[in-house]
Design a protein around this nucleic acid. Structure first.
Lengths: 238, 238
DNA sequence: TTATTATTGTCTCATTTTGTTACAATAATA
DNA sequence: TATTATTGTAACAAAATGAGACAATAATAA
């Protein structure tokens, strides 16, 4: 490797020290609930997409910026759910290895080995319209089913579990299920989202009656799937 | 004032910069839901009790430390509910005035005029066993009913509203009502706590049936209040 | 001692919500 | 034209909740 390859990743004077965010980005492929997980170059470290907050930037905006860079999407449904601030969660050795394997200068990036408090957000996106982009440090970013995750580094497994817990609580309270679907969807698709999030089967007729009684869905034309049975209606939310 | 009176409040090298916490400490006086609000010396600034996180201290522990100092209580029910990170929430002029009016050195305490991200917690305590203590900067710390708060500085009103919103959501999900009462309480007291938090009257018979059906309360001896009617049972939780 | 009063604990019945089964409608295929 | 799988909705049962009624009882007044 050449000498001038060793460079600065982010300038510490632009960012709030000790503060990071992590995002649990949920998608639904029709069957399984998935999240985006990235892998750092040559390390076998799997992690949630995260980032830092600029000194002149709102916390929420920093997270939106990171999501935009990774998914190309704007106006994503985003919810802050917890801030992780234990001492033990920071592991400078891991950060050191990540930077080293991507040929970044360890001295210039020294602030990244400090202790970090991380504000965690979850995002709900339409799986189909996303082509995830890795960042400078990452080999890849890929969808993983929530029950088939690779071993995540540091406390990221705990962050995912908390996200899922809060998402379940918010499913009925905030009617957030449809954020994981395209604008028009069938009742069956919506039920499958609910089932994937709750991790249990639901009764078709009760589910349908309950959702329709909420009076929040608009009914549109039928969807002809080319299958040998009655075609379902399409619905939209808002 | 003498020269050596101007002093350092907290040493910046001991604390994580840009990071604070604020706490919404709820109590119940038998009728009203109240919170602790402090007033800074000679400023007419009312604020939530807050503080900073030491560099070698867990975030949760910093908050517990602050609560202990102010209430003398340990093992308080405490829940993190949101992190406030907008740029506009920081108002260095206000911090400057607070320090100045308490005769602290403005140069030595310069780090306090920076932008701060604040992690907010709410606490539920037994009103009766607390004798709140003001800190070095504060004139007083007092209970205020949540619908009779003085004008709070910066974004503290917003923090209180969010706390109340989350507390309402958690009332049934986490059964936190009894955390605001002494170890033994009557059904009526518990109902009054629920009513104060929800801000609405509840039906006595339905409430009693529902709570008892949860099967989480132990029934004890009767409480003879010296009133001309049947004496209620006392209950405890855990 | 005995009525009076206010509140408590529990019961009953009405109403609403949810669980469960049933069945006709229908889009594609044999 | 019959068959198949799925959909939309109706019908009834079961459970949860709302609303009222009432007897029990702790202190007070008569």
């Amino acid at each position: 490797m050449t000498k001038n390859k060793k460079k600065k990743l982010l300038d510490s004077k632009d960012y709030i020290p000790h503060l990071a965010y992590d995002s649990v980005i949920f998608g639904f492929n029709g069957t399984q609930l998935k999240i985006l997980v990235l892998e750092y170059h040559n390390t076998n470290f799997f992690a949630l997409p995260g980032g830092f907050v600029k000194r002149d930037e709102n916390l929420d905006d920093a997270v939106k910026r990171g999501l935009r860079e990774r998914t190309g999407l704007d106006n994503i449904y985003l919810e802050q759910f917890h801030t992780f601030g234990s001492l033990s969660r920071s592991e400078p050795k891991i950060m050191r290895k990540i930077l080293k394997e991507s040929d970044f200068d360890l001295k210039e990036n020294y602030w990244m080995f400090d202790r970090f408090i991380s504000v965690a957000y979850y995002a709900l996106i339409n799986y189909d319209e996303v082509n995830p982009q890795p960042d400078e440090l990452s080999d890849s970013i890929n969808w993983y089913a929530i029950d088939e995750l690779p071993p995540l580094m540091m406390d990221h497994q705990e962050i995912v579990e908390k996200a899922l817990q809060v998402l379940r609580d918010n499913l009925e309270r905030k009617l957030v299920g449809m954020k994981l679907l395209p604008p028009k969807f069938t009742m069956k698709q919506l039920q499958q989202v609910y089932e994937a999030i709750l991790g249990e089967k639901l009764r078709r007729t009760s589910f349908q009656r309950k959702i329709l009684a909420l009076d929040i869905l608009q009914r549109h034309e039928k969807l002809f799937q080319g299958k040998a049975h009655k075609a379902p209606f399409l619905y939209s939310f808002n």
